[in-house]
């Protein structure tokens, strides 16, 4: 693919060290450690209830971990534990440098305002005050995620599920983040829409040189998008490594089960 730009992969972007999160007696994440470099895409796979989403919420600053550290290399603060920063600084990092794509687009979109306003919101949140420029950028992003430009002033509820998800992706990329969290971005979509969305995400993420953490229970999604893979079970990371390596030569019993349970057509 000629559109792939060279990515600076040396620098660490996110380092998670010994992260624990328990809800009372329930240990949702236990001693999770990994690191992510700029431009790298990490897939987190695991069965339902294995702690994938909890992990994502902890490292995206929404949920404070019970133990361990989440270090993020931000423009303002350099490599710093995000939970040692003030809430104000943490919210600013989330606003300026992160995107968060929810499984259900209704959670990630403002359903009361138009699609164009949804896409332009991160720009306004980051201090842009010129309507014409923001409008132009929204239109540009509508085009990039293959949405009909004529629908820009329609409310998201008039969009199909796949269109809403593409809208959500545009909204999370427009402010040029360095890291995007995605929680089951293709869940709830039919297979053909899933394939187009995956293709779109692969192109966008590579073009922009973004780092992404994608939580999924779909091995296909992981295979297509992720550079590296983290396999979770009961809150533990049971296996991690390069995607192809993990999927072609699974070491842990659970990973073997996961890989062998994919239907072959």
């Amino acid at each position: 693919m000629s559109m792939i730009t060279p990515i600076e992969r040396d620098e660490q972007l996110l380092v998670v060290e010994g992260l624990d999160k328990s809800f009372g007696p329930i240990g949702a994440c236990r001693d999770v450690s990994f690191e992510l470099r700029r431009g790298e895409i990490l897939g987190i796979v695991g069965e339902s209830g294995s702690g994938k989403t909890t992990l994502l919420r902890c490292i995206s600053g929404q949920l404070e971990p019970t133990g361990g550290q989440v270090l993020f290399n931000s423009r303002r603060h350099g490599m710093h534990d995000i939970f040692a920063l003030s809430e104000q600084d943490r919210r600013r990092i989330a606003r300026e440098e992160w995107g968060y794509v929810h499984q259900n687009p209704r959670d990630g979109l403002r359903m009361r305002v138009s699609g164009g306003a949804n896409v332009a919101e991160p720009l306004m949140m980051n201090g842009r005050r010129h309507y014409g420029e923001m409008r132009e950028q929204s239109l540009n992003w509508f085009e990039r995620v293959e949405l009909d430009l004529g629908r820009i002033d329609n409310k998201p509820r008039t969009f199909s599920g796949g269109m809403q998800q593409r809208l959500q992706i545009a909204r999370n990329l427009i402010h040029n983040p360095s890291l995007v969290f995605m929680d089951e971005p293709t869940g709830g979509l039919d297979v053909s829409v899933q394939a187009r969305l995956l293709d779109l995400m692969r192109v966008l993420v590579r073009e922009m040189g973004l780092a992404a953490i994608i939580v999924t229970h779909d091995i296909g999604v992981a295979r297509l998008l992720a550079d590296r893979l983290l396999v979770m079970k009961s809150g533990f990371v049971v296996e991690q490594g390069l995607t192809d390596q993990v999927l072609d030569d699974p070491q842990h019993g659970y990973t073997q089960l996961l890989v062998s349970s994919v239907l072959q057509i």
Binding site: E87, Q88, R91, R95, R110, V113, S114, G116, A117, A120, E121, M124, M125, N126, G127, R129, Y131, M134, R135, I152, D153
Partner: peptide, 22 residues
Amino acid sequence: RAMHAYEEYGLQYLSLYESVAA
């Protein structure tokens, strides 16, 4: 309340954006 405390007023511009768009 958090938005007032941290002076995060970008959201208010969303309603102005909607108004200009419409």
